[in-house]
Amino acid sequence: MSMLEQLTNRDQVFDFLAPVASPVDVRHGPILYLEDVNVSFDGFKAINNLNLTIDDGELRCIIGPNGAGKTTMMDIITGKTRPDTGSVWFGSRHNLLTMNEPDIATLGIGRKFQKPTVFEALTVFENLELAMAADKRILPTLTAIMKPENRDQIDEVLEMIGLKDLRDKLAGILSHGQKQWLEIGMLLMQKPRLLLVDEPVAGMTEQEMERTAELLTSLAGKQSVVVVEHDMGFVRSIARQVTVLHQGGVLAEGTMDQVSNDPEVIKVYLGEEA
């Protein structure tokens, strides 16, 4: 909406006067709701009539071959990409299509990228500090002082992700798997209502994968988690509910067993793997 429209529209308060992110309303069921979403890039339909509902506290796995639209879907939910048509709601109160990335993040959606993205010129500790839930406006950030309880909180997460000894090392020197952990740690510091996790176990050892699975399942219930993953073994180990994406739309949905017996799914995805 242009500035002018905003100023002349009388039945709406200005953006900057509106109260800061009101709590997410999940009384009416789902925490995330995508309906008839469509996106195309230069004629290529990346997302095609996508419908998806995530319940509060759910742990959902999303699988699908390359180009199925998984990452684009995450881009839409986090405000990076705007769909051509459709609607995306967070709870029953927040229309995500009217919000930008920082607002969506502040509202309680955290995202872990496919390629681990940490701030390499900052230490592990500082990475977590930046992720920490706090007032993220300019002046409060400028004058922010680290309180003891904040420090404890960061140490707690450092413990959880196993990077305690590296706390003052630059994140740039971490291994691929350690970066994955650090990014998960940053996600935890954000305390989001909904976690979007893109390929969390790529580059991890068996034990690390197990720990990740443990961590994600323990989060479910308190928080909602959406995991995009290629590793079938990992998906099987955590999934209760699985959604299969294909060519930008939902091909099948159900438990892992239901999905892996679906002939359509076998044809387009699992069949290729076998």
Partner: peptide, 10 residues
């Protein structure tokens, strides 16, 4: 920002 004829896509 991408000019008159931008390239689209990821």
């Amino acid at each position: 920002p991408k000019g008159l004829f931008p390239q689209k896509g990821r």
